[in-house]
């Protein structure tokens, strides 16, 4: 038990520290690298909870795809981040004031926070206990049955996002010559070669 606790505090501390560094690092590339560190530690926390599927998805999707994409964007776009930060100190007092007020309000709400006594039984997970079945399998059982509706809806939302990206950015440029292999293959000798009779002494 003690090992789990140590592991939890280790991973949690690193996650928080890395998260802080994401916004504190001066170099945006470093920020992205710290983000990857935060993702890995969050994945480790998921493993500690017994949610190994979520942990792997987090690593594959966020580290493998999203963070790498971020890295590309940061490296390819020439954004002057120091210029973006210029107004930071100027807006800090107002921002801090709003943040502190919001924090106090949230604390007041959380102070009075109770959970309805029935909540625990209602919220009882729709999947079987973790001892009966591992959670990848359990998720698989409900994603396509009980939760098929939101699952498919999420698919449609992603489809709209894709259509939107194409509609708003794709431009068909005229006068661009593309290679059409079928046309090249279908070209015959008659189209490609023309025999010229050259008269002696005339030149072409």
């Amino acid at each position: 038990m003690i090992a789990t606790a140590i592991a939890f505090y280790l991973f949690a501390a690193i996650t928080v520290a890395a998260g802080f560094m994401v916004i504190a690092a001066r170099n945006p590339v470093h920020s992205v690298l710290f983000l990857i560190l935060a993702f890995f530690n969050a994945a480790a926390l998921f493993v500690l909870m017994g949610a190994e599927f979520l942990a792997l998805i987090l690593v594959i999707v966020y580290v493998g795809a999203v963070a790498v994409l971020f890295l590309f964007v940061v490296m390819m776009l020439d954004i002057d981040f120091s210029e973006l930060r210029e107004g930071f100190l100027q807006y800090l007092p107002v921002g801090a004031l709003v943040g502190i007020i919001l924090l106090i309000e949230l604390l007041l709400v959380l102070g009075a926070w109770v959970i309805a006594p029935e909540a625990a039984s209602i919220a009882a997970s729709p999947t079987p206990a973790i001892t009966d079945i591992d959670n990848t399998r359990a998720l698989g059982h409900i994603v396509y049955t009980q939760y098929v509706y939101p699952f498919q809806a999420a698919g449609l939302i992603l489809l709209v996002a894709m259509i939107g990206a194409i509609v708003l950015t794709l431009r068909h440029k005229p006068n661009v010559k593309r290679q059409v292999i079928a046309d090249q293959v279908a070209r015959t000798r008659e189209q490609a070669v023309e025999m010229k009779k050259v008269e002696p002494g005339q030149g072409l």
Binding site: A153, A154, I157, V160
Partner: peptide, 12 residues
């Protein structure tokens, strides 16, 4: 889910 599907299409 419904709200996001609708909104995303409307933004575009």
């Amino acid at each position: 889910m419904g709200l996001e599907l609708q909104s995303l299409a409307l933004y575009v």
